[in-house]
Nucleic acid binder design. Structure first.
Lengths: 224, 224
DNA sequence: CCGATACGGAACGGGACCGTATCGATGACT
DNA sequence: AGTCATCGATACGGTCCCGTTCCGTATCGG
């Protein structure tokens, strides 16, 4: 019964498994152990360890924790990985600023650091490779990380359409991919996986050029 | 000595390890076993098995081959995986056609089928997740698969710049990512990973709108 | 035919990991 | 003070895999 109660607390708490239940007897679970375990998984993934190579023993070792302490919280690796995904709160969506153009730039700049930098990139790579084998893991990552960013981007694009800065004759999801995709391609497909500082602004200006209803750039005025 | 000679043939032959050497005594190696092993690896990867989960025993089992037959050809899993990457010949870059626009569409259409469809997508996901852990594997995949496609795309873009269909004020590598990236984003980031049939044409038209020097689309003629 | 090398299959000792159990110590409740 | 679930650590039997070695058979060159 204790096991079952504990496991349900995992789901109910939404990521931090060791909630202190008021009526609970005995020594309470260590919150430090929780975060050490989650952090150990993230750290190992960041170092390029694939999920298949992530053993419970190795996770416990990395976390400086007994194996039983891990199994007391999660019934197995799958459940642990799901909670790791749930722990990936997007820190803060960049606030709505001045122009749609500037908001897009700051959104992509946010993606450049937090989304496709070291840890974010390793996570994305690792999770993306397990789409077929562990669909639930992918679903959780998508719901926690990808969806929020996509929605934020869509919001800015909708504002652009309403403002008249963006033409309304394109599917907004496709348009969103037009901004995110090149960042992704650069982070995953090229040999150097770091993203240049100027990339977000360049990308936004380049794409907006094609979708805004306004004037042509100076370089093209002579052409006919 | 036989072992060493055999291993060098692997490298010299460029992917098919069991070359029949004229002066060789005894029963020659089975070419069928070679392809069965390579095919087994690709098939397993296609089913979502990560490289870490790919054991030599499982590969031999899937190929219907004794384990010794695998070890006779490759010294270990790493070497085998490298040859698997080398076996991934890009079947045929789409021929240069009429307009730059049409060539871009057929190039992306090619990518849609062969590059990001079932097998290609699984391979990309799997290899991309091992960038940190096995850089040589990534380098080989990049050299065999990605580079050829990127060069083909760059060639078309250069032709577009020469023709005047594409303005010359943008980095061509960035421009290439502008075409490939959205395909990649759609294949990797969305929940449905299949690519719509109309995506290549839509994408090319959308991007070209922003980078061609010519007239504006009809919707924008009235604007300032 | 004969020597040599290949084949699929089975077995080997060694190692890593699984999930569980047990240990003495720890610490927050009653 | 007493109770009791937790802690890190260690050990267990079981499973899978590694890389090698042997088997009996098949298939080449000489």
């Amino acid at each position: 019964m204790n096991r079952a109660a504990g496991d349900f607390e995992v789901a109910a708490d939404g990521g931090q498994p060791a909630a202190v239940v008021p009526g609970r007897r005995g020594r309470p679970r260590s919150a430090a152990a929780d975060s050490a375990i989650i952090e150990a998984v993230l750290s190992l993934i960041e170092d390029g360890v694939s999920i298949a190579e992530l053993s419970m023993e190795r996770i416990a070792r990395e976390a400086g924790v007994g194996k039983a302490t891990v199994y007391r919280r999660w019934p197995g690796k799958n459940a642990l990985m799901l909670d790791v995904m749930r722990s990936l709160d997007v820190p803060s969506p960049p606030a709505a600023g001045l122009s749609v153009r500037d908001d897009l730039v700051s959104l992509l700049e946010f993606l450049r650091h937090r989304g496709l930098a070291k840890r974010g990139s390793a996570l994305l790579r690792t999770v993306v490779s397990h789409v077929r084998a562990q669909p639930e893991l992918w679903a959780e990552y998508h719901a926690t990380v990808i969806r929020a960013r996509h929605e934020a981007l869509l919001g800015v694009l909708r504002r652009g359409v309403a403002n008249g800065e963006i033409r309304a004759d394109h599917d907004l999801d496709t348009l969103a991919d037009l901004f995110v995709g090149p960042m992704l391609a650069r982070a995953l497909l090229h040999e150097r996986t770091d993203l240049p500082e100027a990339l977000p602004a360049d990308l936004v200006d380049l794409v907006l050029e094609g979708v805004r209803p306004g004037a042509r750039p100076a370089a093209a005025t002579a052409a006919g």
